[in-house]
Every structure is written in C-alpha cells, then in structure tokens.
Computed example of a mutant assay.
Amino acid sequence: MRHPLRAVLLAIGLVLAAIGPALAVQPGERLQDPALEARARALSAEIRCMVCQNQSIDDSDAQLAKDLRVLVRERLSAGDDDDAVRDFLVARYGEFVLLKPRFEGHTLILWLAAPVLVAVGALASFLAWRRRARVAADGRLSAEEEAALARVLSEDQRGMP
C-alpha cells in the first residue's frame, strides 16, 4: 500500500518541479512584441540569479531575478542588442552573472580544466591497465615468490592427513 502512495507523491513532485520555472516570469513582465519577448527569454536563460546562483533569472522567482528580467526587457526595448545587454550586466555584476562564461583569457582555466583533467585521468588509467596487462601476460613468478609458494605448499601438504 505504501508503494502507490510513493508513486503519487513522486508524480506530484515532478509536476510541481516542472511548472515551477514557468511561474517565474510574471505576465506583467512580458513584452508585447513576441520577437523581443523571445530574445528576452533567451537572454534570461543565460543570466545567473545572484540569489539562487544555480538558476537562471528566467527560472528564479527571487526579487532580484525579477528586477534583472525587467532590466533585460527595458534594455531590449530601448534598442540594445543581446551583446550590449550582456556587456551591461557583466559590467554591473561581473562575469559571474553569466551562466556560461565567455571564452577569454581570464576564463581560460574554466574552459580547459575539465578536458585536461579527463585526458590526464584517461592517460593514467591506460598506463595502469597496460602495466597490469604486462604483468599478467608475463605470468612467471620471481625466485622469491617461487620459494615462498614452495614453502607454503610443503607446509600445507605436511599438515594434511
């Protein structure tokens, strides 16, 4: 009887999580021009909410996110292009406001660290595998290992009836 209740609660939770971002942009914030509104929504999806930090301002219902959504729409209505709006927000809040940082000199480590670490891990795994394969292929015991094995086997045979 518990399992159907869990399934219902999980379904309700998933529905609420799915509609949460849809409630972030209020009807009063939307622009009349559908093309401008589409640009505003696309830009809002790229801008980090400074309160929530792992959400875009398009998904967040924080007051600062609302203020930033309104600011983005005001700048677009004033005739700014998308890059000008991004530049304005970066100048005001820093590079952190962008969910996807720009590929520049000071953000180079953000872009290159993950691929370099994956490559180093893959190389280390390959070298460990190759070393293990070489030892397994050789299959011979050293003189010390053979002596130790002979000693264990002779002790084992003496102890058996």
Rank of each mutant, 00 (worst) to 15 (best):
M1A: 14
M1E: 11
H3Q: 12
P4W: 14
P4R: 15
R6Q: 12
A7H: 09
L10K: 08
A11E: 14
I12Q: 10
G13R: 07
G13V: 08
L14K: 11
A18L: 15
P21V: 14
P27W: 13
P27A: 14
P27C: 10
G28C: 13
E29P: 15
P34K: 02
P34V: 08
A35E: 12
L36C: 10
A38C: 07
A40T: 06
R41D: 10
I47F: 04
R48N: 03
R48D: 02
C49E: 02
M50H: 01
V51F: 05
C52M: 10
Q55K: 15
Q55W: 12
S56R: 03
S56D: 05
D58V: 02
D58Q: 03
D59I: 02
A62C: 04
A62T: 03
A62K: 01
A62F: 01
L64E: 02
L64G: 00
D67L: 06
D67M: 07
L68G: 00
V70M: 09
L71P: 00
V72S: 08
V72N: 04
V72Y: 02
L76S: 05
L76Y: 12
L76R: 08
D83T: 03
D83F: 01
A84K: 05
F88D: 13
F88M: 07
L89A: 03
V90M: 01
V90F: 00
A91T: 04
R92N: 05
R92P: 01
Y93A: 02
G94W: 07
F96V: 11
V97F: 00
K100T: 05
R102D: 10
E104Q: 08
G105V: 09
H106Y: 11
L108E: 14
L108V: 15
I109N: 06
L110R: 15
W111E: 10
A113P: 04
A113Y: 14
A113S: 14
A114Q: 06
P115N: 05
G121Y: 12
A122E: 07
L123P: 02
A124Y: 07
F126G: 05
W129E: 11
W129Q: 08
R132P: 02
R132G: 14
V135I: 12
A136W: 13
G139W: 13
R140N: 13
S142I: 05
E145V: 03
E146D: 10
A147N: 01
A147T: 10
A148S: 09
A148F: 09
V152N: 04
V152H: 08
E155K: 04
D156Y: 07
D156W: 06
R158N: 04
M160L: 13
